[in-house]
Simulated scan of single mutants.
Amino acid sequence: MTIKSEPLTEHTGSEIFVDREALISGALSPAIRELLVQRGVIIARGLHLTDDEQRAFTRTMGDLRLGTVKQEGEEGLQKVTFDEKVNPDYAKFFFGSLLWHMDGTYEEVPPFATILTPRVLSATGGQTEFTSNYATYEALPDDEKAWLDTLKVVHTMQAALFPGKPDCTVEEFALWHSYPNREHPLVWHHKTGRKSLVLSTSGSHVVGMHPAESHDLLQRLMAHATQPRFVYRHEWQMGDLLIWDNTGTMHRAMPYPADSGRQLHRFTLNGEEPVRGVA
Rank of each mutant, 00 (worst) to 15 (best):
I3P: 06
S5D: 01
T12E: 01
F17Q: 11
V18G: 03
R20I: 08
I32K: 01
I32M: 06
E34D: 13
G40T: 06
I42W: 01
I42Q: 02
I43E: 05
A44V: 06
L47Y: 09
L47N: 07
T50Y: 14
D51C: 05
E53C: 03
Q54R: 13
R65L: 15
G67C: 14
V69I: 09
V69S: 02
E75I: 03
K79G: 00
T81N: 14
F82R: 10
D83Y: 09
V86N: 04
N87R: 03
N87W: 03
P88A: 10
D89H: 12
F95S: 03
F95G: 06
F95C: 00
W100G: 02
D103V: 04
T114P: 00
G125S: 11
G126C: 10
Q127I: 03
T128C: 11
T131G: 01
S132C: 07
Y134E: 01
A139V: 02
A146T: 02
W147L: 08
D149Q: 04
D149A: 07
K152R: 15
M157C: 05
A159R: 09
G164P: 08
K165S: 02
C168F: 10
K191C: 08
K195H: 08
S196L: 03
V206E: 10
V206Q: 06
L221M: 00
H224M: 04
A225G: 01
F230A: 01
R233Y: 01
R233T: 15
R233W: 05
E235R: 14
G239A: 15
T249Q: 15
M250C: 11
P255H: 12
P257Y: 13
A258M: 12
D259R: 04
E273W: 03
P274T: 02
